[in-house]
């Protein structure tokens, strides 16, 4: 068989009006196929959104996890500057540290603002000084750094984020995997459902098929009438399902700055094009499933 080109696909969609009339319309199966395709596509949009969002989260956290940590210096007000300088010196000499920077008062205030409000007088409070440490790709020896700091900067506590973020990254990766498995299951179920519907239609039209075969119709002609119907029906149903799914995600209340997991459910930028792959993919699944069902039925006819 030659590769179908665009004209063939166009012909397939426009269809052969005559060939279409050969098979009587099937009311209930048609509506059920449409409905199930829509439902499956709707679910697929959410599974996809889940995979994409958790994937993004896992990547971001994984990145930060690997490359940044925080040094906290708690000391009496008159020592804090000296200790900060000492700590920065130590960090500069530590292999594996790309850069180290003490956060300014404004930055510290911004971090605290969600909890204490904008008018917090940072200067007058015994707030620890934070130092943001960026690592080289190779990273540094956290154990060695801690030892050195405890000797030279008694008020320093190194927080390398690993402890609390690793399980979160693991959970996010697992969620992403579950999302992809769900998508596979959804398409598998769609294939099974369309096969069942097509088999029912083929069985209900056994006489039509036998007559067509006896008057000299080729298998491909007979199969096409069924395959076309189910493919287009699935395409239409899936398109509706995807549209509703995208609308539902757009309508989710957004609270992006809090950065929580649920509010991250959605696509970003070009990612919004991703769900548009679902209807053609569903149509392809329907095409293959109906084709196989029709071939199986026809093979047993004289």
């Amino acid at each position: 068989m030659t590769r179908p080109d665009l004209t063939q696909i166009a012909e397939f969609i426009v269809g052969d009006v005559q060939a279409d009339r050969m098979v009587p319309p099937t009311g209930i199966t048609a509506r059920l196929t449409l409905l199930s395709a829509a439902a499956m596509a709707f679910l697929a949009v959410f599974a996809l959104a889940l995979s994409v969002a958790t994937g993004r989260m896992a990547d971001r956290w994984g990145d930060e996890l690997a490359r940044s940590s925080t040094l906290r210096i708690s000391a009496p007000a008159d020592q804090i500057d000296a200790q900060t300088q000492a700590a920065l010196r130590v960090l500069e000499q530590t292999p594996g540290v790309a850069s180290a920077r003490a956060l300014s008062d404004e930055e510290q205030r911004a971090l605290l603002e969600p909890w204490f409000g904008p008018d917090l007088p940072v200067e007058t409070l015994p707030i620890p000084q934070l130092i943001e440490v960026t690592e080289t790709p190779d990273g540094y020896d956290a154990q060695g750094l801690r030892l050195r700091l405890s000797a030279e900067v008694p008020g320093a506590v190194l927080d390398d984020h690993t402890r609390w973020r690793r399980p979160l990254v693991d959970a996010a990766s697992r969620l992403r995997l579950l999302g992809w498995v769900s998508i596979l299951l959804i398409f598998g179920t769609m294939a099974a459902m369309i096969t069942l519907a097509a088999n029912a239609a083929l069985a209900a039209n056994a006489q039509v098929i036998a007559v067509l075969r006896l008057v000299g119709a080729r298998d491909s002609y007979i199969a096409k009438a069924f395959v076309r119907r189910y493919t287009l029906r699935t395409l239409g149903g899936a398109a509706v399902g995807v549209a509703v799914g995208i609308a539902a995600i757009l309508l989710l209340p957004s609270a992006q700055t809090a950065g929580g997991f649920l509010t991250g459910l959605g696509f970003g930028g070009a990612g919004w094009l991703l769900p548009l792959v679902i209807p053609p993919l569903a149509a392809l699944v329907a095409f293959v499933a109906t084709h196989m069902a029709a071939a199986r039925t026809l093979r047993d006819l004289p």
């Binding site: 050969m22 009587p24 006896l214 000299g216």
Partner: peptide, 24 residues
């Protein structure tokens, strides 16, 4: 199967149990 379909176009058959497409 395609060869057989093509051959049947050259052989007209009146079957004993005549069957039609009942919706046409």
């Amino acid at each position: 199967r395609d060869d057989i379909a093509l051959a049947r176009r050259r052989i007209g058959v009146v079957h004993q149990d005549v069957q039609f497409l009942d919706h046409l």
